[in-house]
Design a binder for these strands. Structure first.
Length: 593
DNA sequence: TCTATATCACCC
DNA sequence: AAACGGGTGATATAGA
């Protein structure tokens, strides 16, 4: 155990019960705490909690606060206007780290952790029923209140028991992860500003747009029932039109877009159907939680993936949707949002941690892909993205392929080049960056010999017989990339930047119009400092974009779709009726993509 | 009508 | 056995 953990005089295990109201904000219902040295217990109901200006025990330097999934507890601290505790350990993060790569038989929740350590968790059995009761109403009878408080205390006690089982394994890094839980709670509370008017219009027209799209195109095919694509009808259509469709091992026609594209190239009459399917796939269900304050909030699901990344629900988090949906992000009046992403984060991580000097030079040259191409003598010194776009693309894809451990066949496929040329590209990578490969091989060897692999700050993956070797290869880049993101999130929030969302290698931030430029600089410094801390002094660059109200978020990959969606929502503005133009908005829309 | 499975699309 | 890492979620089909 680390010195700082040991010297904590008080250890308070805490748990809150709360309701999630209005698009994702927690509303505390009660709090239970137990001090582990003395056994002193505190149990506080809503009315009293709301009147408290600070936590019921001092949260200073000599106190360690414990919780299970602490972003919830810290969210309640924020809701109550309390300062965060100085020292926090989240036993969820620690349990995830302890069992990462294994599958705890009862999951990674509090009951699962209790089972793992052979602790009695009878109290946990009623969890679903209690959550249901808590969410079902606003006022509780005396008996219900008693049961909720009892349940809350049982979780705090469980948290304390868990601490006693886990404390020997805790380290300085546990406190770092605790810091991240505070930052995550702050970010979850901030949320993402949404143009709610456009959002509501979109939601209300959603089903109608889909129906119109299908109706307009499927007239000529008859392969849909409602808005559902029917394989049987499609195979019949193919037979009638003498088209032999590629099939899967299961005997079903290959339904993916690549196949549709290829087949449409052979049979041009198929194009509208391909366009329809591609469009519908970008119109999946749409249920972002947006509060009355026009902000999208959801759980970030921190430490959820094996590499330690956040993994928020893609349906509840606007950055999990198709990129065009991001145009619903709009800073409120008088404010701006900034989107800051690390440039070639994983390449930079690999260059720094492997110590490969050529790779570091390629990164520092400003364009690693061109740098690689020049080093490989595939482009002349002085080549740029503009002068050698095709070469650059090849070396870019090859660079990413290396990070994902792609085979030469896979690379050939994705670049549309012969396998022998793909092999040559991969060999060039080995030749140009031998230090990287030595480091990467060593990391995998170590992991296989010792059955674990770690990031620089101790996020560990347990290696089993079934661990994918490509996962191991990729782990140092992705896992340390996640460390970068967590540390930058901590630094950013500590320095007062309003972070709305982390997006793996990027952040969305927000500030008043006159403060946004400073906020961007502060966040970029936080990101560079984080990279230096994780990468032994190597500072990664970042790139920033700013969108000032009333401008909305813009991603070039999504602008076409965004514009066409708007064309459907507001046809009068986009599609003038007239004798020479009888095409429906839907056909125009399909033609535009 | 519900669940399980396969496959795909989207994100980084 | 496949040959692209980490994910969430939607859709379509088959089977209970």
């Amino acid at each position: 155990m680390s010195r700082r953990l040991r010297k904590s005089k008080y250890k308070w295990a805490t748990d809150f019960e709360f309701k999630i109201v209005d698009g994702g904000l927690p509303e505390p219902l009660c709090m239970a705490c137990i001090e582990l040295n003395t056994g002193k217990k505190l149990l506080i109901w809503r009315d009293e909690l709301l009147s408290m200006k600070e936590p019921p025990f001092p949260c200073g330097d000599d106190t360690l606060v414990l919780a299970y999934y602490a972003s919830a507890e810290m969210g309640c601290f924020l809701a109550l206007g309390w300062d965060f505790p100085v020292h926090l350990v989240d036993l969820y993060a620690e349990f995830r780290n302890l069992t990462n790569g294994l599958t705890p038989p009862s999951g990674s929740g509090l009951p699962g952790a209790m089972v793992h350590f052979g602790l009695d968790c009878e109290g946990a059995i009623a969890k679903d029923a209690m959550r249901k009761l808590i969410l079902s109403k606003d006022e509780f009878s005396a008996d219900e209140q008693r049961r909720i408080l009892e349940y809350c205390m049982s979780d705090a006690v469980a948290c304390g028991q868990l601490y006693n089982k886990m404390c020997d394994g805790l380290a300085e890094h546990s406190l770092l992860r605790g810091e991240y839980m505070k930052a995550a709670a702050t970010v979850e509370r901030n949320g993402i500003p949404i143009d709610v008017e456009s959002y509501r219009t979109l939601v209300s027209r959603w089903a109608g747009i889909k129906t119109d799209l299908v109706g307009d195109i499927d007239r000529n095919f008859g392969v849909y029932e409602g808005t559902t694509f029917k394989v049987k009808r499609f195979t019949d259509w193919c037979r009638r039109n003498h088209i032999v469709w590629p099939i899967l091992a299961s005997g079903y026609p290959r339904p993916d877009d690549d196949t549709f594209r290829a087949m449409a190239a052979l049979h041009p009459s198929l194009w509208p159907l391909r366009e329809l399917r591609a469009t519908l796939s970008q119109f999946r269900t749409f249920k972002l939680p947006v509060g009355g304050d026009d902000r999208n909030r959801c759980l970030l699901s921190v430490f959820s993936s094996v590499t330690g990344r956040n993994q928020p629900s893609s349906s509840k988090f606007i950055f999990g949707q198709s990129v065009w949906v991001r145009s619903l992000i709009q800073a409120p009046p008088g404010c701006a949002v900034g989107y800051i992403d690390w440039e070639q984060q994983e390449f930079g991580v690999a260059a720094a941690l492997s110590g490969d000097v050529a790779m570091q030079r390629a990164y520092l040259s400003g364009d690693p892909y061109i740098g690689f191409a020049i080093l490989a003598s595939a482009a002349p010194v002085g080549a740029t993205k503009q002068s050698h776009p095709v070469i650059r693309e090849r070396f870019k894809v090859a660079t990413l392929a290396v990070q994902y451990c792609m085979t030469e066949q896979g690379l050939a496929e994705s670049l549309g080049i012969p396998t022998i040329e793909a092999r040559e590209l991969l060999e060039l990578h080995h030749r140009c960056f031998p230090g990287f490969w030595k480091w990467s091989d060593s990391a995998v060897d170590y992991a296989l010999l010792n059955n674990h692999i770690n990031t620089v700050f101790g996020w560990e993956l347990h290696v089993t017989a079934t661990t994918n070797l490509r996962t191991l290869r990729n782990y140092p880049m992705q896992g340390n990339g996640a460390e970068l993101m967590r540390l930058a999130c901590i630094y950013g929030t500590q320095r007062g930047v309003k972070i709305c969302a982390p997006v793996h290698d990027a952040f969305l931030i927000e500030a008043p119009l006159d403060k946004i430029d400073d906020a961007i600089l502060t966040m970029q410094a936080a990101m560079a400092d984080a990279s230096a801390a994780v990468l032994g002094g190597f500072r990664l660059r970042s790139e920033a974009k700013v969108f000032r109200h009333p401008a909305r978020f813009l991603d070039p990959r999504g602008t076409l779709m965004w514009n066409t969606v708007n064309g459907l929502l507001h046809p009068s503005q986009y599609c003038k009726e007239g004798p020479g133009n009888t095409a429906s908005p839907v056909s125009l829309f399909i033609k535009s993509i």
